[in-house]
């Protein structure tokens, strides 16, 4: 009996997960639990004296529990993981969409005009390498609202890859395509919409895919800073509660959502891709 070739990789993945979990489970096994509690232990309600990493079985159990009721809201310190993710996704979505709306037109302008490219280039080069969180104090002072400040931070970190890729994609559209459009007497707007945009779309989408990845990385850090709601705040809060199993579940959820966002952008990328002939 031979397994079909396309099952090899998934089976291997499952095996890797099983081995890692087993080693982890074994390494974090507590040696003593005879049910007899000392007086001190009774006082601290049976908690372990030394904190230890949660076991995969505990994480799995907690994960199932958290995911079975993901959207409850019992006050600022007790919200479901799903609700926290929705808060984070909302901020990322808002900041990201504004970044697209700003960066694509400006990128077009820069890409179509060498003068504009030279004029904007020094600003882009200086602003691009700034860690988005460095903007936070300024944002908090100017905007005076922590939620909107985190949206701004997402905007500022998403804008650069989209801007640069749009400018690059537009400026490297083949001259032949522009000439085709010129011989057809198309207006500048029609040329931009029907010739340059589709020709540059794959490059623009690449920038958008890089940006959504960065935005999802940054939102966790931003929310740890501003607090209140969101999955970043949630992770930090559970650390303060010393609930490490919950921290691990949140980390995994952040990874899964990030993968989902990347998948969406990859699909969009495929939709606009073309093979150059």
């Amino acid at each position: 009996m031979r397994l079909p070739r396309k099952l090899h990789a998934p089976l291997l993945s499952v095996a890797i997960l099983a081995i890692v979990s087993a080693v982890w489970e074994g390494a974090t096994q507590t040696s003593r639990d005879d049910g007899v509690r000392s007086e001190y232990e009774m006082l601290v309600a049976g908690a372990d004296e030394t904190a230890r990493l949660p076991r995969p079985s505990e994480i799995a159990a907690l994960g199932l529990e958290m995911l079975s009721d993901p959207v409850y809201d019992r006050g600022p310190n007790d919200k479901g993981i799903g609700l926290q993710l929705v808060y984070s996704l909302g901020r990322v979505g808002l900041g990201y969409i504004v970044a697209v709306l700003v960066a694509v037109p400006i990128g077009f302008l820069i890409g179509m005009s060498p003068l504009m490219l030279s004029a904007f280039n020094p600003f882009i080069q200086v602003l691009k390498p700034i860690s988005p969180l460095a903007w936070m104090p300024l944002a908090l002072f100017v905007i005076k609202d922590s939620v909107w400040s985190s949206v701004f931070v997402i905007f500022i970190c998403s804008v650069w890859p989209i801007l640069i890729n749009t400018a690059f994609g537009v400026s490297s559209v083949r001259k032949d395509f522009i000439n085709v459009s010129r011989t057809l007497e198309l207006s500048r707007l029609r040329t931009a919409l029907f010739v340059i945009l589709p020709a540059a779309a794959p490059t623009i989408l690449t920038g958008m895919r890089i940006s959504i990845g960065i935005a999802w990385l940054v939102i966790v850090a931003a929310e740890m800073l501003v607090g209140g709601t969101g999955v970043g705040y949630f992770v930090w809060n559970e650390w303060n509660n010393l609930d490490l199993a919950s921290v691990v579940v949140s980390i995994l959820m952040i990874g899964v959502v990030g993968m989902g966002l990347d998948f969406l952008l990859a699909q969009a990328q495929r939709a606009v891709a073309f093979e150059d002939a």
């Binding site: 032949d176 395509f177 000439n179 011989t183 010739v195 589709p198 606009v272 002939a277």
Partner: peptide
């Protein structure tokens, strides 16, 4: 300038690949 009364066939076909 360019005009629709003059059709051009380019050296490298220049078809829009999408």
């Amino acid at each position: 300038g360019p005009g629709l009364e003059r059709g051009v066939i380019f050296q490298n076909h220049s078809l829009l690949p999408w």
